[in-house]
């Protein structure tokens, strides 16, 4: 099996466009099914990508999702040129949310977005600069 063999797909994510929310993760899911990745791994990739995609739509005014599938693992990179995250460690805490209390009482902004991505993936990286944007890289092993 050649190590460098991979399939890559790119998707544009449009800010505040909820009609298309989830389209990138749905297409990535279909791609993984065609390639024959185990269903449980696909589920984790889809959940992680969906969370990230929604974040970009709500907070960043749009961005890009890139999915690259290797025989052994899948890498998903979500990047945006949004406001950036001032304190990444805080944002990674379960329950931390920028949403005000009354919004959270309505069931939104539970502060699980980033922690969910960490939990879903086998490798997680986040780079963010205030005023420049955020890039999240997730890796998912196919045989975990």
């Amino acid at each position: 099996m050649s190590e460098d063999k991979s399939v890559k797909m790119n998707f544009e994510v449009i800010g505040e466009d909820f009609d298309r929310a989830g389209e990138a993760s749905a297409k990535i899911k279909r791609m993984l099914q065609h390639i024959g990745i185990p269903a449980e791994i696909i589920r984790r990739i889809a959940i992680g990508t969906y969370e990230a995609e929604i974040n970009v739509i709500i907070h960043a005014g749009g961005g890009e999702v890139e999915a690259e599938i290797f025989p052994e693992y899948t890498k998903v990179i979500i990047s945006d040129h949004g406001p950036g995250i001032p304190d990444i460690n805080l944002a990674l805490q379960e329950g931390y949310s920028t949403a005000p209390d009354y919004v959270r009482q309505m069931g939104f902004g539970a502060g699980m977005g980033l922690p969910n991505m960490v939990n879903c993936s086998d490798k997680f990286d986040i780079q963010s600069t205030v005023g420049e944007g955020t890039t999240i890289t997730m890796e998912f092993k196919h045989n975990s």
Binding site: M1, K5, S6, M9, Q33, H34, I35, G36, I37, P71
Partner: peptide, 23 residues
Amino acid sequence: LPRPMMQLDDDIVEAMKKFEQME
């Protein structure tokens, strides 16, 4: 039992090739 039907090939590298061709 699962009965997945979308897989393009039993071999993952072969499936990747077929996916690219398909696209």
